[in-house]
Simulated assay, not measured.
Amino acid sequence: MTIESILGAIVIGAVVGAIGRLLIPGRQAIGWILTIVVGIVAALIGTFIAQAMNVSNTAGIDWIELVMQVVLAVIGVGLVAGLRRGRGSRL
């Protein structure tokens, strides 16, 4: 991996995480740093799934891959927010 691909993954992950967080209704009990981390992980997993399905190399923007990444970010942000909310209510 080059430094450009790492920085690209961070930027795309931040955007994907923010979109995923915005698509969940209500307030989430996680900060922006954790949202970015979830977005980066979702972007990486979405890319691997898209490559496995052979839909990652299309002309122009890879919409299918992007949708996979955002859906995974929504799921990830929801899970992390739910786990943090559950942990906070027990204290």
Rank of each mutant, 00 (worst) to 15 (best):
M1F: 10
L22D: 15
V38H: 07
R90C: 03
V74W: 00
R85Q: 08
G88W: 00
L44T: 14
G31C: 10
V67F: 08
W32T: 12
G39M: 07
D62W: 10
R27E: 14
A42R: 06
V55S: 15
L7C: 12
L79K: 06
I6T: 13
S89N: 05
L83C: 07
L66D: 03
V74R: 01
I40H: 02
T2M: 02
V80N: 02
N57I: 11
A9M: 08
G76Q: 03
I3V: 13
A81Q: 00
G88T: 02
G78E: 00
I33Y: 13
I6N: 08
I64E: 06
P25R: 14
I19D: 07
I6A: 12
G17L: 01
G39N: 06
R85C: 01
R85V: 01
V67L: 14
D62R: 15
V71L: 14
D62E: 07
L34D: 05
I6C: 07
L34I: 11
W63M: 08
I33T: 15
T58K: 04
Q69R: 13
L83I: 12
G31Q: 05
L23H: 09
I19H: 03
G39Q: 00
V15N: 03
I30V: 09
G13K: 02
T58M: 11
G17E: 05
A59N: 14
L44Q: 12
I12H: 08
V74A: 05
G20M: 01
I30C: 02
W32H: 12
I75V: 14
G76M: 04
V77H: 02
V67A: 07
A42C: 05
I45G: 09
R87G: 04
V55A: 13
E65C: 13
T2G: 11
I33W: 14
I30Q: 04
T47I: 04
G20R: 01
P25G: 14
V41E: 00
G8E: 05
N54G: 09
L66N: 03
W32S: 12
L72K: 00
G82S: 08
A43T: 09
S56F: 06
T35Q: 06
L72D: 00
I33R: 13
D62S: 15
I40Q: 08
G46Q: 11
L72E: 02
G46N: 03
L22E: 14
I30M: 14
L66K: 01
A59G: 10
R21Q: 11
V55I: 15
L66G: 02
A29V: 13
A43E: 01
G39R: 00
A59W: 01
R85E: 04
F48Y: 13
L44C: 12
G86H: 15
L22K: 12
N57W: 10
L23Y: 08
P25L: 13
G26I: 05
A29Y: 13
G26T: 08
L79H: 09
A52Y: 04
Q51A: 15
E65M: 15
R21S: 12
A52V: 06
G13H: 04
A81F: 06
A59R: 02
A29G: 12
T47L: 05
I49S: 03
G13P: 04
I75Y: 03
R87E: 02
G82T: 01
I75N: 01
E65N: 15
G46D: 06
S5K: 10
M1K: 10
A73P: 02
V77S: 07
R87V: 10
T35F: 00
V11F: 03
V67Q: 05
V15Y: 07
I64S: 12
G17N: 00
A29M: 11
A52I: 05
L72V: 06
